[in-house]
């Protein structure tokens, strides 16, 4: 069901999953600040809670676009990864 990873795919570092985690972490920090500062959730305009939720949405989107296959291949032990065929 998963596409067979090519050497080109394996050479790409899992940037988007890392970006995703960074956004989710940032969302957590903003939400923590909003909770600590007792900011209202439903005030007029944009609240810190909205910012936290937007960061979370971007984090989730980055996770989806990041393709989980890259992450799994990245974590797989080196010896089991597909070696590129030698060029003649």
């Amino acid at each position: 069901m998963l596409p067979i990873p090519t050497p080109e795919v394996l050479s790409i570092p899992p940037v988007l999953p890392v970006v995703s985690l960074a956004f989710i972490f940032a969302a957590g920090l903003v939400a923590l600040f909003a909770w600590w500062a007792k900011r209202p959730r439903a005030a007029g305009g944009v609240t810190p809670w909205d910012v936290a939720a937007a960061l979370m949405l971007v984090g989730c989107a980055a996770a989806i676009l990041g393709e989980i296959e890259h992450l799994i291949e990245f974590f797989r032990p080196q010896e089991s990864k597909i070696e590129p065929k030698p060029t003649r």
């Binding site: 999953p17 995703s20 989730c60 996770a63 989806i64 989980i68 974590f75």
Partner: peptide, 9 residues
Amino acid sequence: MIDLVLAGD
């Protein structure tokens, strides 16, 4: 890492 990423969609 994988579970956090999978929870997104």
